[in-house]
Write a protein that binds this DNA or RNA. Structure first.
Length: 566
DNA sequence: GAAAGAATGAATTGGCAT
DNA sequence: ATGCCAATTCATTCTTTC
């Protein structure tokens, strides 16, 4: 049940651990309440929560009870809470752990009956895992939290000794608490190795995020390094919890409000974000953070590599580009572009006087050029990019967003919200030797299919793509791409992440043999600097869907673990 | 009605002088 | 360390135009 809410045993265990065993569970509560607001899409739910909170019950338990009984059944909720409190007082919470585990996998709310596709092995697992509660009990007696213990059991499988479970828990603790423990040995060498990092002395990536320490954006923003450049970092050690399968790849804007990336990282198994500005791989800036558990050695670029400067990308502009416009890169491609009238205003300003424009005029023109990403397409004629030019810059085939019932304005919006394909492909390139026979992809917040285009251009066969995208026009674009590129794999499109219930995810995984990659960039609306109205952070109306990514990823991870065990 | 145009700052960071 | 300035930013909403 907690999994359905987006909060796995793992996440709760980690959150509790981070705040200390007896500390306030503010992180959990904050997350759960915010998530639940979104999930239920109604304020009545939070009113119900408030109601019971006012009675002095623990918020976590309240939310759980509401989910179990439905918010309208306040009496049952109350009963449940009272009996729950009694159990707690008895200091024997162990049975509840198993309860969570069972609920997790035999949720009767789901439309699909698990027994229909659970193999006999799976059932055996459920039974034997009940039998293993004595191990959990042992661990609890040794001072570990019940959640920690059940987590260890979950990840290590049923046929392991208690000593092994202890090892796992210790390893997980060390991995989380001591960043230097999993630093690359090469990078960890003491200072006599200075020559090696002379090139980028400041770019020492933190391999694990400390909750107390704010995330700092690297300067230059080049992630683990650029292709064909010195100073490449080719190895990192992930926190144990973060390891695949499945691989996951999460993206969002780098310049988010303070604290956002700390939260994102914490919810994605403490993997430190890789911040990269796409201006190092193409002719337009795009500062983004990527949280992923992919290997980072032997990355390669897709061919042909994109043009590096605006003038190379759009050769016709060279002729008209004034000397005093020193730009070689464009700024970030946004969701709105300048009007055609702006081109006229710029032209009028430039032609007000003959000869070299005044400094003031240059300043005005340059300001507009940088604000609106104008390029020179004629004498004194600075115009916004065409949609197909944006497609080129972002690594999509020309006319990728054409058709599908999209207006020009809508194309700009969809393109502004998209991946830079070359950047994503650079990161995903390590998958190519790993999946020669193809890959099963769960693509969330697909948009116009940046991930799919990247995989296609990498020539990694897509056996299955399950895609979730709210915009019907964007779904059409992906479908068209799928057909036009003669994909042999299966494409399944959903409109809403809410449709991906636990049962449906499990069903899909059983059908296709699991997912190898869970990829997506959740909505940035409430994080993006351009938003003057609702830049409300990760809990904003759209950006809160980040927690849906977490929820779905966690279901895939747990299902993957189960499938591999059986 | 649909599409395009115009108006609407703040948060954050880096650089640099103090 | 602190303060100032410049630069950048996956946007929203209302108005106008067709």
């Amino acid at each position: 049940m907690l999994v359905d809410m987006g909060f796995s045993v793992e996440m709760i265990a980690r959150a509790i651990e981070e705040n200390g065993p007896n500390a306030e569970t503010s992180v959990i509560i904050d997350t759960i309440s915010n998530y639940s607001k979104h999930c239920e899409a109604s304020s009545s739910k939070s009113k119900t929560i408030d109601h019971f909170l006012a009675m002095g019950f623990d918020e976590e338990k309240v939310i759980k009870a509401i989910h179990e009984h439905g918010e309208e059944n306040t009496e049952q909720i109350a009963d449940s809470l009272v009996s729950c409190a009694v159990v707690s007082c008895a200091a024997e919470e162990l049975p509840k752990v198993k309860e969570e585990d069972d609920i997790d996998w035999s949720d009767s709310d789901n439309e699909i009956n698990y027994s229909d596709f659970l193999s006999s092995d799976d059932e055996k697992h459920l039974d034997s895992s009940l039998g293993n509660s004595s191990q959990v009990l042992d661990l609890v007696k040794m001072g570990y939290s019940k959640l920690e213990a059940s987590l260890a059991l979950e990840r290590c499988g049923e046929n392991v000794s208690t000593a092994d479970l202890v090892d796992f828990i210790c390893a997980a603790q060390i991995a989380r608490e001591a960043p230097e423990f999993h630093a690359d040995p090469e990078e960890r060498k003491p200072r006599h190795d200075v020559k090696k990092r002379r090139i980028e002395p400041k770019r020492e990536p933190r391999l694990s995020t400390d909750a107390d320490e704010p995330v700092r954006l690297p300067n230059p923003m080049i992630g683990f390094g650029l292709p064909n450049e010195p100073g490449l970092i080719t190895h990192r050690t992930l926190p144990d919890l973060a390891r695949g399968p499945p691989y996951f790849y999460y993206e969002n804007v780098a310049l988010a409000p303070k604290g956002v990336w700390e939260t994102i990282s914490r919810h994605l198994y403490d993997v430190a974000p890789e911040f990269m500005d796409s201006k190092y791989l193409c002719a337009a800036a795009r500062k983004r953070g990527y949280v992923h558990n992919l290997p980072i050695s032997n990355r390669f670029q897709i061919q042909p590599p994109p043009k590096y400067t605006v003038q190379e990308a759009f050769p016709l502009t060279k002729k008209w580009w004034p000397k005093w416009d020193e730009r070689t890169k464009l700024n970030c491609i946004l969701t709105v572009t300048a009007s055609a009238q702006l081109t006229n205003r710029v032209r009028n300003a430039l032609e007000a006087h003959s000869g070299e424009p005044s400094e003031a005029t240059k300043r005005y023109v340059m300001k507009e050029c940088k604000t609106w990403n104008l390029v020179w397409v004629g004498k004194n004629k600075a115009a916004p990019l065409e949609p197909d030019e944006m497609e080129t810059l972002l690594g999509f085939p020309k006319n990728h967003t054409r058709g599908g019932g999209m207006s020009r304005t809508e194309r700009y919006k969809s393109l502004g919200n998209s991946f830079q394909v070359d950047t994503v492909a650079y990161h995903l390139s390590v998958l190519k030797p790993l999946f020669p026979n193809g890959i099963n992809v769960l693509s969330l917040f697909t948009g116009i299919g940046g991930a799919e285009v990247a995989l296609h251009r990498l020539q990694i066969p897509m056996k299955t793509v399950v895609s979730v995208e709210i915009s019907a026009e964007n779904r059409n674009i992906l479908k068209d791409f799928w057909e036009q590129t003669n994909q042999t794999g299966v494409l399944i499109e959903f409109a809403d992440v809410q449709e991906l219930t636990t049962s449906r995810i499990v069903e899909l995984m059983k059908r296709f043999g699991g997912f190898d990659l869970v990829i997506g960039g959740s909505p940035c609306n409430n994080l993006a600097g351009g938003n003057r109205v609702t830049r409300s952070g990760l809990h904003g109306e759209q950006s809160v869907l980040f927690y849906e990514y977490c929820r779905i990823l966690e279901v895939v991870r747990e299902t993957t673990a189960r499938m591999r065990r059986s």
